[in-house]
Design a binder for these strands. Structure first.
Length: 472
RNA sequence: GGCCCCAUCGUCUAUCGGUCAGGACGCGACCCUUUCAAGGUCGAGAGACGGGUUCGAUUCCCGUUGGGGCUACCA
């Protein structure tokens, strides 16, 4: 077999959903693994809902993820002539027919079927029209759609992830392939394009399984061999329902904005519904490609767990040197309206790196060290409440102990000694002396070691904040 | 309603008939640290149910239950 050709074919009717991103990723991984070609096709046949803005967002999302395409983007809307020609060929060969039923008639039939608790299936009445009758309708200029003659035969395939899936043609109806305005319906456009673009492997979402028999019927009618189909399971929200807006962030852009790394997102998405086998979790791009296979794809849906995504991002964050993080941190600081006032940010980044899971969190922590906390987090607030007067008392002690240290001697080591000596003299546990300082300086119970924190914040700002927090 | 897909810890998963059912996230404990994390160690935690097939089923088959998808002149 010549090298595989795969495609990702989103419709620009919304943002790039994480499910779509994963489908794109699997296609990409497969193409890279097999030395195949990854084609991007924008399915914009739904003129009502498709927008250029959505197309742009999808392209940007893919680029951000590092899912690069080798061909395209092709726009399905540009191929109307071929779609029409294919439909007319089917018509000429008797594999399709004109349907003059109006929307109203169809709606009435559907309503009646539903009232009887039955599924609606078009009864094919227009297929039985005589040639004279068709000619007469045509002469009158009655609008018509073109429907495919659904063969009464088995429509089955060996799905690369599900194994054999089989439908019966008699359970399906003669579906519309060309609208009365001459534009194609999804299934028809897809098959026409996949044939034209010589797609060998169709890797797409599970929700397309029920479209597949229709498309197989189309391939057979058109006289083209079918590609390999691989239907990847869907992504669910934590409640087990299809992932949607109400589960929170679903667009890849949301995660980019939250400070998730493309590499972490890629790694996480790849492991959602696919496993390289064994116990590996953190896989760089090259390993992902090396290990990828369609057979490794799970057949059950997967729940999108943002906690694990963040953990994974933290792994990538910890492994990235501060110097590489710097530009992103500077951008985030700018967004927060925080100036670095000429300070070298590298030590600050290193100080908070292992305690952050996203660039955004990291930048916020850097900002706090630069300008002080805006508020206390829940744990810190609880701690302050629990300590009562002890909180400000310990802060006053800290100020007394730290004030004598001149700026020139304001080092982590000296600070540690001073705090220890003070705590010991007052009979205060070191933790009780430290934690109020940490909270006063960061608004959080989590930070680098307190003496290092003090050194990083600097003598004047640190003492000022401690006094303020102590109510002095 | 019809057609189709799915079913291992809370979550992501390993297992391709014989395992103390392994790993990761999260959770708990401990170690490290006279302070926070990170890290390390340990722990709790799963084969939906019922039938088969088999010397032996999480694994193969059937059914039940429970999820999900599709059922448009949407994609």
């Amino acid at each position: 077999m010549s090298s595989p050709r795969v495609r990702f074919a989103p419709s620009p009717t919304g943002y790039l959903h994480v499910g779509g991103a994963r489908t794109a990723l699997f296609n990409w991984l497969f193409a890279r693994k097999t030395g195949g070609t990854f084609v991007l096709r924008i399915e914009d046949t739904d003129r009502e809902r498709s927008t250029d803005a959505h197309t742009r967002v999808i392209l940007e999302g893919l680029e951000w993820l590092g899912v690069t395409w080798d061909e395209g983007p092709y726009f399905q809307g540009a191929y109307g002539d071929r779609h029409r020609a294919d439909a007319e060929r089917l018509l000429a060969e008797g594999r399709a027919y004109r349907c003059f039923c109006t929307r109203e008639e169809l709606d009435a039939q559907r309503a009646a079927a539903e009232a009887r608790k039955e599924g609606f299936r078009y009864d094919g009445r227009c297929r039985r029209r005589s040639e004279e009758n068709v000619a007469a309708e045509l002469a009158k200029g009655t609008p018509f759609t073109i429907r495919l003659v659904m063969p009464d035969e088995e429509l089955a395939w060996d799905d690369a992830v599900h194994g054999r899936i089989s439908f019966q043609g008699r359970d399906l109806d003669d579906f519309v392939i060309l609208r009365s305005d001459g534009t194609p319906i999804y299934n028809h456009a897809v098959v026409s394009d996949d044939v034209f673009m010589r797609i060998t492997h169709v890797i797409r979402g599970d929700d397309h399984i029920s479209n597949t028999p229709k498309q197989i019927a189309l391939y057979r009618a058109l006289g083209h061999p079918e590609p390999v189909f691989a239907h990847v399971p869907m992504i669910l929200g934590t409640d087990g329902k299809k992932l949607s807006k109400r589960h929170g962030a679903t667009a890849v852009g949301d995660y980019r904005d939250q400070g998730i790394f493309p590499a972490a997102m890629r790694n996480f998405l790849a492991l959602l519904g696919w496993s390289p086998g064994g116990d590996r979790e953190i896989l760089p791009e090259a390993d992902l490609i090396e290990a990828f296979s369609l057979e490794g794809i799970q057949s059950k849906p997967a729940v999108f767990d943002t906690t694990k995504l963040e953990w994974m991002n933290g792994q990538y964050l910890s492994a990235t040197p501060a110097s590489e993080l710097l530009p992103a941190v500077e951008r985030q600081l700018e967004r927060l309206g925080v100036g670095s006032s000429g300070r070298d940010l590298l030590p600050l980044i290193d100080a908070v790196k292992v305690r952050s899971r996203t660039i955004t969190q990291l930048a916020e922590q850097v900002a706090v060290r630069l300008e002080g906390p805006k508020e206390r987090d829940a744990k810190a607030a609880t701690l302050v409440a629990k300590m009562g007067d002890g909180y400000s008392m310990n802060l006053r002690r800290a100020v007394t102990a730290l004030e004598p240290i001149p700026a020139a001697a304001w080092t982590a080591d000296a600070l540690l000694d001073a705090i220890k000596a003070s705590a010991e003299a007052d009979g205060v546990k070191l933790g009780d002396a430290m934690q109020p300082i940490r909270v006063a300086l960061t608004g959080s119970t989590v930070s680098e070691p307190v003496n290092e924190l003090l050194a990083i914040v600097g003598r004047e700002p640190a003492l000022r904040r401690l006094r303020e927090a102590a109510g002095q």
